[in-house]
Amino acid sequence: MYNTRIHPYFSIYGRLYSKDDLLELGYSLIKEGEEFEMHIGGFILDWIDSSPTILVKTSGSTGTPKDIALKKEQMVNSALATGNYFNLTSKSSVLLCLPATYIAGKMMLVRAMVLGLDIHFVSPTSSPLEFVDRSFDFGAMVPMQVANSLSKLNLIKKLIIGGAPISNSIREELKGIDNSSYETYGMTETITHIAVKPLNNKMAKNTPFTVLPNIEISTDARGCLVINAPNISDEPVITNDVVDIISTKEFYWLGRFDNVINSGGVKVHPEHIEKVISNYMDIPFFVAGIADEDLGEKVVLVVENGVKEDIKQTLDTITDFKKFEKPKSIVVLKEFIRTESGKIQRFKTLSLLKT
């Protein structure tokens, strides 16, 4: 049995809502709202019921999507930690432009209800600020939304960005925008972000992630990040993210363990190669390893709707590759397989090569 407490200053579009009001609102959104509002209404009803847990779907970017149960008490703790880190106080204004079907959108609602924020909704399109004409204290976006909102991004004073890799071109653009933008590290199992790093300063490229309060980090035998955060998870969260820990509170993310390519006995992180290539290419692509008789695995560049000859010419101009990093071949596919939230599903997309 969970007794949901709603902050007395929680409001939607400036109107205060009590727990009783939310019951009526939830049903109204489900019955009469647009599709994205129906999901918001459904989550509100789940949040205020007596169950101590919420079922949340993982994104499926690194495996099959699955439902996991998160404790509401731990979701509250996550909201409090975010509020403390970003100095969000009651009556601060926040924009929800992510779908409430996944953890990032759900937690924006939780933060508003727990911290007493004034939340506004817009459809979670690829250009969410298109019709927005006012400023907000806080918001969250995925990189694709950021790329399509650069001219109006100053309307969100503090912006967290996650859900997919951020391209080098976006990183450069953010340095000239008059707001505070942060890259986040986290996952559904950690109830969104557990670490952030600023993106606006000129040294942002070499800045490590800094973990939020009450979180301890370490690595396992594979060099992958282990997160010990008793306020948000009953057990340590063992990730598949290879990291370089530089202090008890800071780390560099190197790449996914399950993406590592063993080429001629050298372990290569495709994410690093992608960062290099993204300085020269702005079409969708990713780097992967495929079987090779001589090397065991060879590095290949997989591109969506590109011209192979042009891409080869671009690769030949790049001098930043280390040994074994330059792609040995280029594969062009008509369309990548993506999750509902827009993340490229590498392994499923690679399976297209065999069909």
Rank of each mutant, 00 (worst) to 15 (best):
Y185H: 11
K152V: 08
G255F: 03
F336N: 09
F336C: 13
I44W: 05
L212P: 12
Q345E: 15
M203R: 11
L88R: 05
F138R: 01
G289M: 11
L117G: 00
V142P: 03
S61R: 08
R222E: 14
S50H: 06
L129R: 06
D49W: 02
M1S: 06
K157Y: 00
I215S: 01
L25R: 04
L150F: 07
T62V: 05
G342W: 00
N168H: 12
A229T: 10
E183V: 04
K72T: 00
S149T: 04
I232A: 08
V266T: 13
A229G: 15
L117M: 09
G342R: 03
L174N: 02
A81P: 04
L353D: 12
Y280P: 03
L254N: 13
Y85I: 09
F36I: 04
I245K: 13
K19E: 08
G264P: 05
N228L: 14
A221M: 09
S61Y: 06
A147F: 10
K343H: 06
H193S: 06
L350I: 11
L150E: 11
F10W: 07
Q345P: 04
N201Q: 11
M203W: 10
K328V: 15
A164N: 01
Q145H: 06
L115D: 07
L115C: 01
E173H: 10
L353G: 10
V122F: 01
I283V: 12
K197T: 11
E216S: 11
V287M: 05
V122Y: 03
V242H: 10
T210L: 13
G60F: 07
I194V: 15
I54T: 00
D241K: 12
V142T: 04
S263Q: 01
A140E: 00
V226M: 06
V287P: 01
V300K: 02
E34T: 14
K322R: 08
L29G: 07
S218G: 14
A229P: 15
T239E: 11
D310H: 14
I217E: 05
I215L: 07
P143V: 02
L174F: 04
V276K: 09
N231L: 15
I318Y: 08
D118I: 12
S78M: 00
I261Y: 03
N154S: 13
H272P: 00
C97W: 05
D310S: 14
V303A: 02
S341R: 07
D282F: 01
A288N: 06
L295E: 07
M113H: 06
V114G: 09
S180G: 02
E183N: 14
T64P: 01
G163Q: 02
T317M: 14
